[in-house]
Design a protein around this nucleic acid. Structure first.
Lengths: 267, 267
DNA sequence: TCCGGTGCAAGAGCAGTGCTCTCGTTGTTG
DNA sequence: CAACAACGAGAGCACTGCTCTTGCACCGGA
């Protein structure tokens, strides 16, 4: 560890440290702590993340670490926010790819899946069981919504093109669907929003089962299985490929998102 | 792996107990340990489950507990197996209810959801992120399959009645679907099995998001939302209500599983 | 230039954890 | 009855999150 980095020897002539060397060191050390914590997270999982081990690896003493994160939970919160932002950014990037709405839908799903498979422990941190006695603080709600909003964005664009009306709502669900539409995606039809929320959670069902090992000895060709399932998820939510022909819609629809390979590679 | 428990035969008249007091005490204490562990699990979650606390609560010393469970992971494994069996039994009971296949499908889904909401920490134990460095041993795979098999059972019965052909498979998925059908549900058409596996994982996506708090400020009327989503899950897998009319299938289908209330109560 | 406030690292310490080992005791078996 | 295996108790090790105190280094104001 670089302890005396940038000692800021009273260099008032040019003033390289506009905010003072102290703040600079602080942000650097904070980042180093998060990096090392992320490394341990990836190596052993959230439950085995140890403040003392992080400090030890960084050459500090454990108590010094409390100057930067008041508790282990606060460190975990920081990692959670970062993870949400990371997967959210991946989803948003995939949503910006070209192609018809259904292809973009598949790209977003595949990007989230690829991120989850690359960062299983971070995925478990945010989409697995909530950590020990941990209650997600308010800071996490906005980053947590980015994937969902990316899906909503694709659906919104699909609405401009030839969209298929999503299936109708039972009477009992209509008020709730209208409330969801107003809160989450103003302007979108309630049926579509209800379908989107369901598809959103079901997408993470697919991904969680794969990441958490429930598909062990059940699904082998997981790329193909996921591509097909994600494609159907989009279709059933009312997102259609722009092939306006409207001839064979659901019959033998081949996933546009590439057959058998994760689409994330293209994003 | 039982020890030689069959030996206690000489006690014809003097026997303090039929099977020997020791074995009796052993099974009783084992059960007591699991009970207390389950209580702590429900109170604070898996990560906070402490062998010492369990022993303390039972009036033993922590080292004595190792006579019954060689490690904390072994205790967790026992709890995991019990949890799988518990939710599996709930699903199987729901699958045995009367009604048309789609109603039974909805009953199974609702029963699993109800179990999850009643035992959130046990649910997290089996469907959340895998615990610390824990790798599920072989003992868990059979109990873990009971919910899936209950769904398969409903689908199999639906096949006798008027079933709707599930959507076709892309060419890339056909071999995998045939393998899954052969392994998991011999005799069922591959398209149906592939749909069932997807629906199975997506069902747990719905439940996990609700249990783990992802629906916070997103879905409010969760009973209605879940009933509708589960109903659609079944329909899209090709399970139809026995109302053979085949007139309005997906249009304004009102969930048969009761609108707005968890169906588990009827099972 | 000195001086006091402040951020910071280090260390000791507390209460808790999983787990191992030893040592008597006690039920079971030959 | 005697040998044996299972058992409970206790001490102990290495580890954890977290707190508190102490002393050093910086940094702005006089």
């Amino acid at each position: 560890m670089n302890s005396e980095h940038r000692t800021a020897r009273s260099a008032d002539s040019t003033g390289p440290a506009v905010r003072g060397a102290r703040e600079r060191a602080r942000s650097e050390i904070t980042a180093a702590i998060k990096d090392e914590a992320r490394r341990q997270l990836a190596a052993a999982g959230a439950a085995k993340l140890s403040l003392r081990a992080v400090a030890r690896e960084l050459g500090m003493v454990s108590s010094a670490l409390y100057r930067y994160f008041p508790s282990r939970d606060e460190l975990l919160t920081a990692l959670i926010v970062d993870a949400y932002d990371s997967v959210g950014a991946a989803a948003e990037t995939a949503a910006r790819t070209g192609g018809d709405p259904l292809a973009r839908w598949g790209a977003v799903c595949a990007a989230v899946r690829a991120w989850a498979l690359e960062h299983p422990h971070e995925y478990a941190l945010i989409y697995g069981s909530p950590v020990p006695g941990y209650a997600a603080p308010q800071v996490t709600v906005e980053p947590a919504s980015r994937v969902g909003l990316a899906l909503v964005g694709v659906a919104r664009d699909a609405l401009d093109g030839p969209g298929a009306a999503p299936p109708g709502l039972p009477d009992g669900l209509r008020p709730e669907a209208e409330r969801m539409a107003a809160d989450l995606a103003p302007g979108l039809p309630p049926e579509l929003v209800a379908s989107l929320v369901a598809a959103w959670s079901q997408l993470f069902g697919l991904i969680s089962f794969e990441v958490f090992g429930q598909f062990h000895r059940v699904v082998e060709d997981r790329d193909a299985f996921f591509a097909h399932a994600a494609d159907r998820l989009g279709r059933e939510a009312g997102i259609l490929p722009s092939a306006v022909g409207s001839g064979s819609v659901a019959g033998s629809g081949r996933p546009v998102t590439g057959s058998g390979r994760p689409v994330a590679g293209s994003g």
